[in-house]
Simulated assay, not measured.
Amino acid sequence: CNFDLYSLKGLVPTNLAIINKDKFDAVIDVLVQMGKFPFLISDLVAVSDEGETLGNLKIAEGKFGIATVSNTIYDVILRFAGVSVTPEFAGLLNCRRYEPQGFTELISYRGTTLSPGWLFLKSGLTSVLKCLKTGYGKIITAVRSFSKYALDTVRSEIKIAKLKGFGGIVGILHPSSRQFSLPLRNRARLIVSAGLNHIAPLQELGFNPEIRVNEVFVEFSELKKVDKVY
Results as ranks from 00 to 15, higher is better:
residue 87 P to N: 06
residue 87 P to L: 11
residue 88 E to P: 01
residue 91 G to A: 13
residue 92 L to T: 08
residue 92 L to S: 09
residue 93 L to P: 01
residue 94 N to W: 11
residue 94 N to I: 12
residue 94 N to M: 14
residue 96 R to A: 06
residue 96 R to G: 06
residue 97 R to F: 08
residue 99 E to L: 15
residue 101 Q to W: 02
residue 102 G to N: 04
residue 102 G to Y: 01
residue 103 F to D: 01
residue 105 E to A: 13
residue 105 E to K: 15
residue 107 I to D: 05
residue 107 I to V: 14
residue 108 S to N: 10
residue 110 R to G: 00
residue 112 T to R: 15
residue 112 T to I: 15
residue 114 L to N: 10
residue 114 L to S: 09
residue 116 P to R: 12
residue 116 P to A: 04
residue 117 G to I: 02
residue 119 L to V: 13
residue 120 F to E: 01
residue 122 K to I: 08
residue 125 L to C: 04
residue 127 S to Q: 07
residue 127 S to Y: 07
residue 128 V to A: 03
residue 130 K to N: 09
residue 132 L to Q: 05
residue 133 K to Y: 11
residue 134 T to D: 06
residue 135 G to H: 12
residue 138 K to C: 05
residue 140 I to Y: 02
residue 142 A to I: 15
residue 145 S to N: 02
residue 145 S to F: 00
residue 147 S to E: 11
residue 148 K to W: 00
residue 150 A to W: 08
residue 150 A to M: 10
residue 150 A to R: 14
residue 152 D to G: 00
residue 152 D to Y: 06
residue 153 T to Y: 08
residue 154 V to R: 08
residue 155 R to T: 10
residue 156 S to E: 07
residue 156 S to W: 05
residue 158 I to H: 03
residue 158 I to M: 14
residue 158 I to G: 02
residue 160 I to C: 00
residue 161 A to H: 03
residue 161 A to P: 01
residue 162 K to P: 00
residue 162 K to D: 02
residue 163 L to I: 08
residue 163 L to T: 14
residue 164 K to D: 02
residue 164 K to G: 02
residue 166 F to T: 08
residue 167 G to Q: 04
residue 170 V to H: 03
residue 171 G to M: 01
residue 171 G to E: 14
residue 172 I to E: 03
residue 176 S to V: 08
residue 178 R to M: 11
residue 179 Q to N: 09
residue 179 Q to A: 14
residue 180 F to K: 07
residue 180 F to E: 04
residue 180 F to M: 02
residue 181 S to P: 00
residue 182 L to H: 06
residue 183 P to E: 06
residue 184 L to N: 11
residue 185 R to L: 12
residue 185 R to C: 05
residue 185 R to Q: 13
residue 185 R to D: 09
residue 186 N to C: 06
residue 189 R to V: 02
residue 190 L to E: 08
residue 191 I to C: 01
residue 192 V to W: 03
residue 192 V to E: 07
residue 193 S to T: 07
residue 193 S to K: 07
residue 193 S to A: 15
residue 194 A to F: 03
